[in-house]
């Protein structure tokens, strides 16, 4: 990481701390902001957050590792989350997953080489009556079939 980039990131995090306060309870809000902008929270960013909130870096890392929507390693530009819980499973999640894997040429948990997609399992999306369900970034899609899933992916930029 370049020094200029580091400084810019520090400044950005400082502005979040100014906004949400330097109490440890502000941690999640700050992490969300960083995640939103950079799609991941880097090692350096985590240490900066820890420094500014006066907590230990490992505590920040612990929180990030706990939440599925926060991640410390860079992921693809688009995040595909497929519901893995039982009702989606019974409605044919497996075929959907296989079709997506074939289409993108990656396995679940991986990122495409062009950095366009990362595919993951998610625990219950709360749409058990309309399974199989999948979320692409913030948009949820239901009643999937393998064909429909592939078509949805092709529309993503």
């Amino acid at each position: 990481m370049l020094v200029v980039e580091k400084n810019a990131l520090s400044e950005e995090i400082e502005s979040y701390v100014e906004k949400y306060g330097n109490d440890r309870s502000a941690l999640l809000m700050i992490l969300h902001e960083i995640q939103k902008k950079h799609r991941h929270i880097s090692e350096f960013a985590q240490q900066e957050v820890a420094r500014l909130l006066n907590i230990h870096p490992v505590e920040v890392y612990s929180v990030i590792s706990f939440f599925a929507f926060l991640n410390s390693n860079p992921k693809g530009r688009n995040l595909v989350r497929i519901c893995q819980t039982i009702s989606c499973d019974m409605k044919g999640k497996k075929q959907v997953v296989q079709a997506i894997e074939r289409e993108l040429g990656i396995k679940i948990g991986e990122t495409t080489k062009d950095n366009k997609f990362t595919v993951e399992y998610a625990n219950c999306l709360g749409l058990c009556d309309m399974g199989p369900a999948m979320a692409i970034n913030d948009q949820v899609y239901v009643n999937l079939t393998p064909e429909k899933a592939v078509e949805l992916l092709s529309k993503v930029k």
Binding site: E43, Q46, I55, H56, P57, V58, E59, Y61, S62, S65, F66, S72
Partner: peptide, 20 residues
Amino acid sequence: EVGVLEAIDRGHNTHIGTFF
């Protein structure tokens, strides 16, 4: 108050670990 160790990950994968 050194702060090396914390619980990392969640559920079945939880383990005690260091930063990254």
